[in-house]
């Protein structure tokens, strides 16, 4: 059992996040077919793959929102598959997550969204939590005047920024990014990519992202893994992704319609 006091740092040989032979099927449809992946502390791994290849299921399995059928998911060397209640909460406290559609709570103003984990999860008083939220908003380039707006009043790019501020507010060890640039124009996408790199570096956090946007993957990844038909068919340094020699990866990163990959119809 590894202690979770902040002073304790696991030895660098222990991966921050380690998946071994993870399987998940919905009915007869196999979504994850034996995924194994290690992410070292401080590393940023991006999983690329087409729509419907199981990227979201992979991420949700690590978060514990979906329970895998078999396999093991270690976080700081500790098994997390099948954890429930308080133990699960304790693991979740190490995580921050930026959702694809930002998933901001639309009944709460922006600052309460950002401070949500602080107020509800850690029991911080509302006053100091608000100050912390404004500080986090500044980190993602938003002024204090945004704090009292509601999420519905913001543009897509601004919502993503608030989502990012919320993901880093708790100062998590591991941050997950679910298609961080989807639905944004290229300039705003690049702004978000820069912010992600900056925030992850500042926190010294480990990052696991899923995306199909190669510009984004190239910018935020140390290492890239390609998911195809429920398996990781290629893993390598981000610099090598454009000359991997793997026909599947080549087709994907260059966005060619013809090649070994055929598109799945059903999600």
């Amino acid at each position: 059992m590894i202690s979770t006091t902040p002073a304790y740092q696991p030895p660098p040989s222990v991966p921050k996040l380690s998946l071994t032979n993870v399987h998940k099927a919905f009915g007869s449809k196999v979504v994850l077919d034996g995924i194994s992946l290690d992410v070292r502390p401080g590393e940023s791994v991006v999983v690329i793959g087409g729509s419907g290849t199981g990227k979201s299921v992979l991420l949700k399995s690590v978060l514990g929102l979906i329970t895998p059928d078999s396999g093991s998911i270690l976080i700081d060397g500790e098994e997390t598959v099948g954890l429930r209640g308080r133990k699960r909460d304790k693991v979740l406290r190490k995580f921050g997550m930026l959702f694809q559609g930002a998933a901001l709570f639309d009944s709460l103003p922006v600052w309460e969204n950002v401070a949500f984990g602080l107020i509800q999860g850690e029991g911080m008083a509302r006053g100091p939590a608000r100050d912390k939220a404004v500080e986090k908003l500044a980190q993602v380039g938003l002024g204090p005047e945004v704090a009292d707006l509601f999420p519905a009043e913001l543009s897509g790019g601004m919502q993503k920024r608030v989502g990012l501020a919320r993901a880093i507010a708790d100062e998590p060890d591991i941050i997950f990014f679910d298609e961080p640039t989807t639905g944004l124009d290229p300039i705003m996408a690049d702004v978000i990519n820069d912010l992600i790199v900056k925030c992850v570096k500042e926190l010294g956090a480990t990052a696991l992202s899923i995306t199909h946007d190669m510009a984004s993957a190239r910018k935020i990844a140390d290492r890239v893994a390609m998911l195809y038909k429920g398996r990781l068919i290629w893993t390598g340094p981000a610099a090598q992704v454009f000359d991997s020699g793997n026909p599947y990866v080549d087709q994907f990163v260059h966005g060619r319609a013809s090649g070994p990959i055929t598109m799945a119809v059903r999600a």
């Binding site: 949700k60 978060l63 514990g64 929102l65 909460d89 979740l92 406290r93 995580f95 921050g96 997550m97 959702f99 694809q100 559609g101 998933a103 901001l104 709570f105 639309d106 009944s107 949500f116 984990g117 509800q120 999860g121 919320r166 708790d170």
Partner: peptide, 25 residues
């Protein structure tokens, strides 16, 4: 309608990742 919309826009999942149990909250 409210909880359903929160579910399909992943707000319910977001609650979990912010260490808040959706059943309790």
């Amino acid at each position: 309608a409210e909880i359903g919309t929160m579910r399909v826009t992943e707000q319910v999942d977001a609650l979990s990742t912010l260490s808040t149990n959706p059943f309790k909250y």
